[in-house]
Amino acid sequence: MRNFPVFRLRVTTPRLELRLPSLDDLDDLADLAAEGIHDPEAMPFLFPWTDAEPAARARSAFQFHFRQWAAWTPEKWICPFVVVFDGQVAGVQEVAATDFTITREVATGSWLGKRFHGRGIGTEMRSAVLHLAFDGLGAGTATSGAFTDNHASLAVSRKLGYRDDGVDVHVRRGERAETRRFRLLRGDWTTPPGFAIHGLDPCLALFGADHAERT
């Protein structure tokens, strides 16, 4: 795809491959969303899309990617990678930015199929997009956030060296809920061994990173 080379971009780790999904990947991702992402009593997302019935969750997971591809500009983009573990689609890891050329800041978000929880995949897939952001795109900072009862996400942020960056208040399922913000500085990041980026150079202009300082 000469006009949208991000489809050839890959980030690999010792156990994972992150890539923009094919249509077959999206089918697998939709099935995974229908199976379940978290316990029903929990809600880790600001927009509670997983409260929908399984068929609606599957359709939402499928359609989300088309919306992001269609809306992508160098000034504002969301790059939702599918995460492949042991040949299986395991979830989504996204990295996003607005005016990256100026701000040099990215934000991340993710979800993982429930049957893939507890294997350290969440840490490894977040590390993969941080490698892309810092070492590939030349980001200066990366942000993340999670509800205060989303202990798995909070643990990943702390494990990877993020610093506390404050608290936001939201309404979740009709009740008050807090999210904790985190910020990771480029100088606090060290890429783990065995991580690699493939096919990045043709994509840099789409990320607004063609003039960014990169390592």
Rank of each mutant, 00 (worst) to 15 (best):
A42C: 10
H65T: 08
D86G: 06
P80M: 06
D86P: 01
F81P: 00
A97F: 03
T50Q: 00
Q63C: 10
V89P: 02
F64K: 07
A70V: 07
V82I: 12
C79Q: 06
P80T: 02
P48H: 12
W69E: 02
T73G: 10
G87T: 10
E53V: 14
P74F: 13
P54L: 14
A71V: 01
G91A: 07
P48Q: 09
A97Q: 08
D86K: 12
E75G: 13
W69S: 03
I78D: 09
D86H: 10
V89E: 08
G87P: 12
A71G: 04
S60D: 13
M43Q: 15
A70P: 00
E53H: 08
F64S: 14
P54D: 11
R59N: 12
T50K: 00
T98Y: 05
M43N: 14
W69P: 00
A90M: 12
T73Q: 09
W69C: 08
V83Q: 07
W72C: 06
T50G: 00
I78K: 01
V83A: 09
V92L: 06
W49Y: 10
D99K: 01
V95G: 05
E75Y: 02
P54M: 13
H65D: 02
F45V: 07
S60R: 09
Q63F: 07
A42T: 12
C79F: 12
I78E: 03
V84D: 03
S60F: 15
A56G: 06
T98K: 14
F64I: 05
F62M: 11
V83S: 09
V89I: 14
T73H: 04
A97Y: 01
W69Q: 09
A55P: 05
V84H: 06
V95A: 04
T50W: 00
C79R: 01
A71M: 05
S60W: 05
